[in-house]
Design a protein around this nucleic acid. Structure first.
Lengths: 189, 189
DNA sequence: GCAGTATTGCACACGGGTGTACAGTGAGAC
DNA sequence: GTCTCACTGTACACCCGTGTGCAATACTGC
């Protein structure tokens, strides 16, 4: 049997993905445990959310660091990034909904490092004229990864189609020409 | 003094825009009225939300119908659409947040006609090879206007920069080349 | 078998939002 | 003046989620 704590986290992620307003009771039941037990591991709902967010941040920064270190062109790096981050974004799509509302501040704060790394990548793309410059790098990166999350969020079944759509769409909005975008995605589907 | 009912609706839109979880009490206070009075006009919270949504749908379909009737090229029509729908989308940005959660179903149902009109416009663009075809028209239109709403939602101060960003970004993700997008927006800023 | 820890099964306090009931008040219409 | 109608003020019932307390029980390793 998986460690109870980890099982609670996994199940909470699933459940909150379906319904961001799921309560501690529902999470407990779904984890095959009593509500009281959840509180033994996470003193408050915020603790649970925070732990989930920290997990997401860790996974995403890991991917971003690797991709940034690979020295590939910014657009190719972006494709690699989306390909690898897609399952993560999909798993943690709740955070998109949770970012508004009660815990928004806490989540936003934890997400800071990811935002920075993302902006760095987009900046690099703009400096090498691979990405469009109609918006500042930080704004553009926010919108682009917002779109990725939004598509992940609307794609409840987690499929390759979703990933492909997210990749091409985000490339286009970053200013990569359609032909180039298609070519890039062909390489790494 | 404005009709109480209309004032409640206006104030509710503002308040919910700031915080989608604002309660009937807060809305009442902000409208300078007692909670009980709100219930005189809207028997339940859902009634209020529904009325708000109906308003949004009416305004948006009006704009969409005009734009669709103008016979302009699809990309130019899209620019006109965003320009005119932007203040509306901004005002009603709450609906984006409210679409998840308790009233999601009701809102989604009411938004149906808008979705269809939007898909028609995008389809026309695809048929005339003005828009990209990497995604089916209904999916693409959903994503594109999702982005517009998302930008409206992140732009609390309602500014021309937001509108411009939303227009260019959505054009790009529809597959319009950057040069053409800039040119189009230059025409109608 | 025993100690120690994780989990259970209640019970409870608390806060907050929804929706209702009903008597009272104020202002304009006739 | 008085009738009407919108709004007020207050109180209440209800539901639901959070977080706590505590004794009882199951499971673990030694």
């Amino acid at each position: 049997m998986l460690e109870t704590r980890d099982r609670i986290l996994d199940v909470a992620l699933d459940l909150l993905g379906e319904n961001p307003d799921a309560g501690m009771g529902e999470i407990a039941s779904a984890a095959g445990v009593v509500r009281r037990t959840v509180y033994d591991h996470f003193p408050s709902r915020l603790d649970l959310i925070r732990t989930l967010t920290e997990r997401a941040v860790a996974e995403m920064t890991a991917v971003l660091n690797e991709v940034n270190a690979s020295g590939a062109a910014a657009d190719a790096a972006w494709v690699a990034f989306i390909a690898r981050v897609w399952p993560v974004a999909h798993r943690y799509r709740v955070l998109l909904a949770l970012r508004r509302g009660e815990y928004g501040e806490a989540i936003h704060a934890l997400l800071g490092p990811v935002d920075e790394l993302l902006a760095d990548l987009v900046k690099r793309g703009q400096d090498t004229t691979v990405f469009a410059q109609h918006l500042p790098a930080d704004t553009l990166s926010q919108i682009a990864y917002g779109v990725v999350f939004a598509i992940a969020d609307s794609d409840r079944s987690n499929g390759t189609p979703g990933a492909r759509a997210a990749t091409i769409t985000s490339l286009l909005m970053l200013g990569v020409p359609e032909t180039r975008a298609i070519a890039l995605v062909g390489d790494q589907p």
